[in-house]
């Protein structure tokens, strides 16, 4: 049995050149139809590339915004400096707290002056610094409730400004975007598989006489099927590559358009985004080409 497998493998390797030529011939013989198939796969992978890029961008934005999620804890003014430091340290050890640090009165004043900008002169009307020291606590949104209850219950903490409504909305939006991303990527992925398997099925149908002849000559199913799998792989990978080029240009254009009016949106690095998207789409297109071909072959065999 092992010997037979070796024979089959040797025969398969000997025929690699033939399989590639045969796939090219099959594409050439039905060129118009295959060009349309290539356009379809390019278009669908372009949509997939843009959806994935958009998803990555929104994830990055959410991550950055989530990183900014914070609450402010005000403490009793009678607390000694040593107690305040201990309080900050205890807050740092709470699960769900990313970082807790003391913001002194002067820093609080400076921040407000920065926020007010030109109107900061209004602060000059106060004889003393109107701002109190507080602890700025950056938190993980998922742990918001437990962190809030922990901090509120801590001795020495007089008041917690939690921005709960804003944080909850942010959390909700992040969840929806993540779900939407999965749904869209899944839907586009399934459409790609269906289109490619249909293209391969059509290819098999137009070559049914050849397939039948090879069967009558005793060709193994693997020998008959492999050029069609390669055809699916070539069409799909070529479509994927074209889509990456198109998506690359589109992303560059989009960044240029967004840089002017929306400079505050924290977008990921353009180069990293395009390279990662390119690798993913070409890899996916190759895999989907193979899987789609297998699906096309198996459905053609059933009929």
């Amino acid at each position: 049995m092992k010997g037979w497998d070796n024979v089959k493998m040797k025969n398969f390797l000997n025929n690699i050149g033939y399989f590639v030529r045969e796939a090219k011939t099959t594409i050439r013989l039905d060129l118009t139809s295959n060009i349309f198939s290539l356009f379809s796969t390019t278009l669908i992978f372009f949509i997939l590339a843009m959806v994935i890029s958009g998803w990555w961008m929104s994830n990055q934005v959410i991550e950055v915004i989530q990183g900014e999620a914070e609450i402010n804890a005000y403490f009793d003014e009678q607390l000694e400096k040593k107690d305040i430091i201990e309080l900050v340290e205890s807050m740092n050890s709470i699960k769900g707290v990313e970082a807790a640090r003391l913001v002194g009165e002067d820093e609080a004043y400076g921040r407000m002056a920065e926020i007010l900008g030109k109107d900061a002169q209004v602060l000059a009307y106060f004889e003393d610094n109107p701002f109190h020291s507080f602890v700025e606590v950056k938190i993980h949104l998922d742990e918001m409730d437990s962190v809030l209850s922990h901090i509120s219950a801590m001795e020495g903490v007089s008041y917690v400004r939690d921005n709960r409504e804003v944080l909850e909305r942010l959390h909700h939006i992040a969840g929806i975007l993540e779900l939407l991303g999965y749904v869209v990527v899944g839907a586009v992925g399934i459409s790609t598989l269906v289109i490619i398997s249909h293209i391969i099925r059509q290819g098999i149908y137009s070559n049914r006489e050849q397939i039948n002849t090879l069967r009558l000559l005793g060709a193994p199913e693997m020998f008959i099927a492999f050029p069609f799998v390669l055809e699916g792989l070539f069409l799909s990978a070529a479509g994927g590559s074209l889509a990456v080029v198109l998506a690359g240009f589109s992303i560059k254009y989009m960044y240029v358009q967004m840089a002017g009016p929306l400079p505050f949106i924290p977008l990921p690095s353009q180069e990293v985004l395009i390279v990662n998207m390119g690798i993913l789409i070409i890899g996916l297109s190759a895999c989907m080409g193979i899987i789609g071909s297998m699906m096309g072959l198996s459905s053609a065999k059933k009929n």
Binding site: V7, N11, E209, Q210, N212, T213, P220
Partner: peptide, 23 residues
């Protein structure tokens, strides 16, 4: 039952490619 789009030689060779014969 010859395979269209291929030469006479390719058709004859095609019938032998899966027979464990050296290329």
């Amino acid at each position: 039952k010859l395979i269209k789009g291929r030469s006479a030689m390719e058709n004859v060779m095609l019938g032998m490619r899966f027979l464990d014969i050296h290329p």
